[in-house]
Design a protein around this nucleic acid. Sequence first.
DNA 1: AAGACGTGGGT
DNA 2: TACCCAAGTCT
Length: 328
Amino acid sequence: MDATAANLLLEHHRRHARDLPWRMTPRDPYRTWLSEVMLQQTTVATVTPRFLRFVERWPTVEALAAAADEEILGEWAGLGYYARARNLIACARAVAARGGFPATEAGLRELPGLGAYTAAAVAAIAFGEDAAAIDTNVERVAARVFAIGDRKAAGEAAKGWFPPGHHGDFAEALMDLGSSLCRPKVPNCAACPINAHCRAWALGCPEAFPHPKVKKERPHRFGVAWWARRRDEVWLVRRPARGLLGGMAALPGEEWCEERPSVNPIAIHRHGFTHFTLDLMVVPCAEPPPGEGWWQPVAALGQAGLPTLYRRAIEAALGAEREPRLAA
DNA sequence: AAGACGTGGGT
DNA sequence: TACCCAAGTCT
């Protein structure tokens, strides 16, 4: 592919690169790794404040490795995809135990939570290795530049495009381009530094590449969450370590199912997950259900580390307590 | 290898 | 409103 286009893009990036908090010089492997994991399927706008809190609380991988699981999971609460946080903990401890991050893509790839993309990104950005980090932005930009419909094929084609010695910068250049100009919808091709090298632009249909993903329908499920109150406290539990919201703080409850349970809820919270929609029925009960748990002061619910599902459900229940007439 | 896995913002 | 999508990984 065209080295001219690659150089134009790098030049454009040097002038227009966004000033993001994980882009310090020299690049810190810890911050590079942490930001890359946070950014998996998550926007820069969402990550930025959370990243700053994280590195203020745990400035080094050793500090993170020494923290308790619940503290880290609580700090991750609301960010979603909690397997990332569980892998983050395991990864930090493995890295601390071996005395630092592996400096190669292959070594990084062995760590929990580092897949093909993240291992390449950290190797290239933090260690200067010529590893091609192919993410959805790179796939989309390449799909348009080369007019390739298939995302994965476009990503493969992009590998030969990375300039030797500049893989980290080039990956960031492609990602910034993908988020600012070469957006999924309504790309701003007129302002693109490489539009003269773009086949999709020449064809007059940049939005036709890559081909759209096939969408599948989201089933509906129901859940019961027990609302056990005592003075100014609520009974919370910790969910099982694996699976959906694994290891996170939660309201106690039953297994979720396909049929609407016949209960008398104080509030119903509808929550959209990636692969299904949930109606969580918050049902008052006199005593906490059997099992482990703790009384959480209502005034300190913000420090409970609740994922958004339960934070919202609890807000709805507290609102219903205050305004019974508005209850569903 | 297709499905599980969260959430918030943009349109 | 409803849908699309985001710096993916794991099983």
